[in-house]
Computed example of a mutant assay.
Amino acid sequence: MSKYGPIISIEDDHDDQYLLKSVLEEMNIANPVYFFENGLEAFNFLEVTTEQPFLILCDINMPVMNGLELRQRIDENPYLKKKAIPFIFLSTSGSLPLIDEAYKSTIQGFYKKGSSFQDFKKQIELIVAYWEACLHPNTRL
């Protein structure tokens, strides 16, 4: 993990993409943000990039490849698994069966998106602050 690496957002809703971009700008986060509209696009990027992403924020319900399928593909890929990129689900869905299913894989968090801009911003602030402070196998000190 690189604290300065890109934030990967996998989100098919353009309004939610705009919301995340707005929150990160308001927080003065300097990391580049790469948006992907489905898990397959993100997976294809992650397989070839030499960058070490800071973290992945992933929706669950998306076309082509959903978030659960993406997490499974990352876990099965030795190159990506070794990168150990923090993977957080950030979704409008928050049912207990879905949360249980998500935690069967190696995720680092599951958040139901805040219902207001301020609630969503608080969630992102918590996530970013935690991972900025956290030591990690690929931390560049």
Rank of each mutant, 00 (worst) to 15 (best):
residue 12 D to M: 00
residue 94 G to F: 01
residue 68 L to V: 05
residue 33 V to H: 02
residue 15 D to C: 06
residue 140 R to V: 14
residue 72 Q to N: 12
residue 78 P to L: 01
residue 137 P to T: 05
residue 47 E to D: 04
residue 74 I to V: 12
residue 133 A to I: 04
residue 37 E to W: 05
residue 87 F to K: 05
residue 46 L to I: 03
residue 102 A to E: 08
residue 8 I to V: 12
residue 70 L to K: 06
residue 140 R to E: 15
residue 80 L to D: 01
residue 20 L to Q: 11
residue 102 A to D: 06
residue 18 Y to D: 13
residue 85 I to F: 00
residue 59 D to T: 02
residue 5 G to C: 03
residue 125 E to L: 15
residue 25 E to T: 03
residue 62 M to N: 03
residue 49 T to V: 09
residue 70 L to H: 05
residue 47 E to G: 03
residue 101 E to K: 15
residue 90 L to S: 05
residue 103 Y to L: 01
residue 132 E to V: 11
residue 140 R to T: 14
residue 138 N to L: 08
residue 77 N to E: 10
residue 15 D to G: 12
residue 55 L to E: 03
residue 131 W to V: 09
residue 40 L to M: 15
residue 25 E to V: 03
residue 94 G to E: 00
residue 128 V to D: 10
residue 27 M to K: 13
residue 132 E to T: 09
residue 127 I to M: 09
residue 78 P to A: 01
residue 122 K to V: 07
residue 135 L to W: 12
residue 52 Q to T: 10
residue 136 H to D: 07
residue 21 K to I: 05
residue 82 K to M: 10
residue 14 H to I: 13
residue 91 S to V: 05
residue 84 A to F: 11
residue 111 Y to E: 07
residue 116 S to A: 01
residue 31 N to K: 15
residue 70 L to D: 00
residue 15 D to T: 11
residue 30 A to N: 08
residue 11 E to Q: 09
residue 33 V to G: 02
residue 5 G to L: 01
residue 97 P to M: 03
residue 19 L to K: 01
residue 126 L to W: 11
residue 115 S to A: 13
residue 99 I to H: 02
residue 70 L to G: 04
residue 89 F to S: 00
residue 92 T to R: 07
residue 84 A to Q: 14
residue 68 L to T: 02
residue 106 T to F: 09
residue 110 F to G: 14
residue 67 G to I: 06
residue 2 S to I: 02
residue 108 Q to G: 08
residue 35 F to P: 05
residue 50 T to F: 09
residue 54 F to A: 00
residue 35 F to N: 10
residue 132 E to Q: 15
residue 22 S to A: 15
residue 124 I to C: 08
residue 72 Q to S: 09
residue 77 N to W: 01
residue 13 D to T: 10
residue 12 D to V: 00
residue 77 N to S: 11
